[in-house]
Design a protein around this nucleic acid. Structure first.
Length: 567
RNA sequence: UGACCCAUGGUGUAAUGGUAGCACAAGAGAUUUUGGUUCUCUCGGUUUAGGUUCGAGUCCUAGUGGGUCAACCA
């Protein structure tokens, strides 16, 4: 049966992923009156990363696509790990990605009273009991995936006793760990999560929102599904590892007798050459392996933002990688493709030399300065042009000159003409070297005055075009060249005796001095540029108008370097 | 000695019993005042064995491989 009936708001561009299929089917069947309501439920115990971005784009994207709603809900049931700093950063990141939860900002802690009442319902139904065993005993009697667990000796307490004990747990009568509330399900279930899971624990800890109001806190399993239910979530989308929780999710909602959302699991994003666990990212931050959660090498959203990734590029990335149930490792080159594609259209071009060697145009008058007109973005002529000063002494990239070049080297070499971008065609006549090191100190050239850009002779065919900057007009600035944080594709998979940190790339950051054309002076933090022939760069927040700081977002594709001729 | 989930080019992801397609990566060429961009082309895939069917990537069974589950974390 092939029905090609379009659901309003649906884009025909891409085929549907399995979650969209499910939603489409639910809409067709009139489930939830055709309503679609999702949520993004982070725990505020760390910064969001690109994997969360996938989930955010999925959940909010579904909301947009099916004209539904998406809530932002903090899953804040563990006061020991959670902090306001994280709440703030998460909201900033979701907003920055371009999503809007409107008036639907929620916290699981908003529901603590309701959740408590749900627990009481369970107790009254004889479906939950207070267990006095210490944590290690509960663990020991839970069995293993292969072996069934054993009933707790407290399993058959009366409803009255359970109620009394639970009330006293709440009132603070017992110390941490003294008792827990457990769901009474089945200690022999093949699913460990159904073996009388703990649903409330005693924690005399101050909560970032509820303060000291509570000393018992619900566990994830007892908070998440019920919160979904309270908010009227129709499709509760989470990652694969929660698949085994789904029977418990459904059981609790059924036993409490409340609206039942549907949990759907998808495969989380993995990226090569990085790590994606909050714990490991936290470790890198705490041990100073990076400068912070927003270090431009981090896969965090704040890190990518500081690196120069745009929200559009990340959303497009999330779209391109798709959504499925099989484990996946995405190649970082796909992420890089997405940002290059985006920045190619929007970043203005500018010339900057990162590893300079001096060029003297011997037949160019010493005191003359010419203003060259350069296009800001050849992809978009509407972006107009700018002036770039040209003078007798220039810098070019040291690797753009070779005295004794390999074949197919199109750049400057003695006796051969090359074009200086937006300026003149020049020819290298001689070089000066440091007698000790043999390193080239000055390249002497002559220029052809008839080949200024725009003149007829400038149409002459020359092999190479080089970027340059007038030495005396150059603006010196700090340029941070970033590379991948890890030197191996799968740092999580450390060999015996090593940890992921043993695979940190020692060359992930290389700070150099850049000599940039003067038009860059106006650049503001957050502005992105293409340094022609080099890559995309963003003005960092550390930048000041008299001391510019750039981060390299990503280098340009370099098909010359790939041939292996280089160096 | 378990339960559950997953299996399509190098990496992702489509194909909803009827021509295995797309993107990235890789390679070749064209264009180019960025060795960028753009354009063209090439390479390369259904985990195995059975079964159902006129027809199977798709359905069934078994195997193999991978993943998840034994916090009072989420």
């Amino acid at each position: 049966m092939k029905e090609s009936k379009k659901i309003p708001g649906e884009k025909p561009a891409r085929s549907m992923n399995f979650i969209e299929e499910i939603i489409k089917e639910d809409i067709r069947n009139g489930k939830n009156d055709g309503r679609v309501h999702t949520r993004f439920p982070p725990e505020p115990n760390g910064y969001l990363h690109i994997g969360h971005a996938k989930s955010i784009c999925l959940n909010f994207g579904l909301g947009e696509k099916y004209r539904g709603k998406t809530n932002l809900r903090f899953d804040d049931t563990n006061p020991i790990k959670e902090e306001v700093e994280y709440v703030d950063s998460i909201m900033e990141d979701v907003k920055w990605l371009g999503f809007d939860w409107e008036d639907r900002l929620f916290y699981a802690s908003d529901y603590f009273e309701q959740l408590y009442e749900y627990a009481v319902i369970l107790i009254q139904k004889g479906k939950a009991y207070v267990c006095d065993m210490p944590a290690d005993e509960i663990s020991a009697t839970r069995g293993t995936p292969n072996r069934p667990g054993k009933d707790s000796p407290y399993r058959d307490r009366s409803v009255e006793e359970n109620l009394d004990l639970f009330i006293r747990m709440r009132s603070g009568e017992f110390p941490d760990g003294a008792r827990v509330l457990r769901a009474k399900i089945d200690m022999t279930s093949p699913n460990m999560h159904m073996r009388d899971p703990v649903i409330y624990r005693i924690l005399h800890a101050s909560h970032h929102r509820t303060g000291d109001t509570w000393c018992i806190y619900p566990m994830y399993d007892f908070a998440h599904g019920q919160s979904d239910s309270i908010e009227g979530i129709t499709h509760s989308i989470c990652t694969l590892e929660f698949e085994v929780h789904r029977p418990l999710y459904d059981w609790l909602i059924r036993e409490i007798g409340i609206y039942a959302p549907r949990q759907i699991e998808f495969a989380r994003l993995n990226l090569n050459y990085t790590v994606m666990s909050k714990r490991k990212l936290l470790e890198l931050v705490q041990e100073g392996k990076v400068t912070g959660w927003d270090d431009p090498r981090m896969p965090t959203i704040s890190g990518l933002r500081r690196r120069g990734y745009t929200p559009e590029s990340i959303r497009n990335f999330a779209e391109i990688i798709g959504v499925a149930k099989r484990d996946n490792v995405i190649d970082v080159s796909l992420l890089e493709f997405c940002i290059r594609e985006d920045l190619n259209k929007r970043a203005d071009r500018v010339m900057g030399v990162l590893n300079p060697v001096k060029v003297v145009i011997d037949n160019f008058p010493e005191d003359r300065v010419e203003e060259m007109e350069a296009m800001n973005n050849p992809e978009d002529p509407a972006r107009s042009t700018r002036k770039v000063p040209f003078s007798r002494e220039l810098y070019i990239e040291r690797e753009d000159f070779m005295e004794d070049p390999p074949r197919k080297f199109f750049r400057m070499t003695p006796g051969r003409e090359v074009r200086l971008r937006s300026a003149y065609i020049v020819k290298c006549e001689s070089v000066e070297k440091d007698p000790k090191s043999g390193q080239i100190t000055v390249i002497h050239c002559t220029y052809d005055p008839m080949t200024r850009s725009g003149m007829p002779d400038s149409n002459r065919k020359v092999k190479g075009t080089l970027h340059w900057v007038s030495a005396r007009h150059a603006i010196e600035s700090k340029v941070r060249l970033y590379d991948r944080l890890f030197s191996v594709p799968d740092p999580d998979n450390a060999e015996e005796g090593k940890t992921f940190k043993d695979y940190l790339n020692p060359d992930s950051l290389n700070v150099v001095k850049g000599y940039l054309e003067p038009s860059i002076r106006e650049a503001q933090a957050g502005d992105t540029f293409q340094f022609e022939r080099k890559g995309y760069f963003i003005v960092d927040k550390d930048s000041r108008s008299d001391a510019l700081v750039f981060n390299r977002v990503v280098a340009l594709r370099d098909s010359w370097a790939k041939t292996g001729h280089q160096k």
